[in-house]
Computed example of a mutant assay.
Amino acid sequence: MQQVSQDAVNLLLYVQIGQIITALLAIGAALWAFYKWRRRDEHFPRMTFEVDVNFIGRKDDQIVCELVAILENKGVVPIELKDFTFLLRGLSKKDNLGFGGEKIRKQLNFHRELSRGTFIPKDWPATFVYPGVRTEYNFVTMIPADTEFVRMQGDFLYLEGKDKSHHAARILAVPEFDGVKEPPK
Rank of each mutant, 00 (worst) to 15 (best):
Q2E: 11
V4A: 15
S5H: 09
A8L: 13
N10V: 14
L12Q: 12
L13Q: 07
Y14V: 13
Q16S: 13
I17D: 14
I17P: 08
I17F: 12
Q19A: 07
Q19V: 05
I20M: 05
I20A: 06
I21M: 10
T22E: 06
A26R: 03
A26W: 02
A29T: 05
L31F: 03
W32I: 07
A33Q: 13
F34I: 04
W37E: 10
W37L: 09
R39E: 15
R40Y: 13
E42T: 00
E42K: 03
P45G: 01
R46N: 03
T48K: 02
F49T: 00
V51M: 01
N54E: 15
I56L: 02
I56S: 04
G57H: 08
R58E: 03
D60Q: 09
D61N: 08
L67R: 07
V68M: 01
V68Y: 02
I70M: 07
G75D: 00
V76P: 04
V76T: 02
P78G: 07
P78N: 07
I79A: 10
D83F: 11
D83G: 11
S92Y: 06
K93P: 09
K93H: 10
N96W: 04
L97K: 14
G101Y: 06
E102L: 05
I104G: 04
R105F: 12
Q107A: 11
E113H: 08
R116Q: 12
G117N: 01
I120T: 01
D123C: 12
W124E: 04
W124L: 06
A126V: 06
T127I: 06
E136C: 03
E136V: 03
N138M: 08
V140F: 12
T141C: 00
I143L: 05
I143Q: 03
A145C: 04
T147F: 04
V150T: 00
Q153I: 15
D155G: 15
D155Y: 15
L157Q: 05
L157P: 00
L157S: 08
L157I: 02
Y158L: 11
L159A: 14
S165Q: 09
H166D: 14
A173L: 09
A173T: 10
V174P: 01
P175D: 07
F177V: 11
V180T: 10
K181H: 08
E182M: 09
P184C: 04
P184D: 09
K185M: 11
K185Y: 12
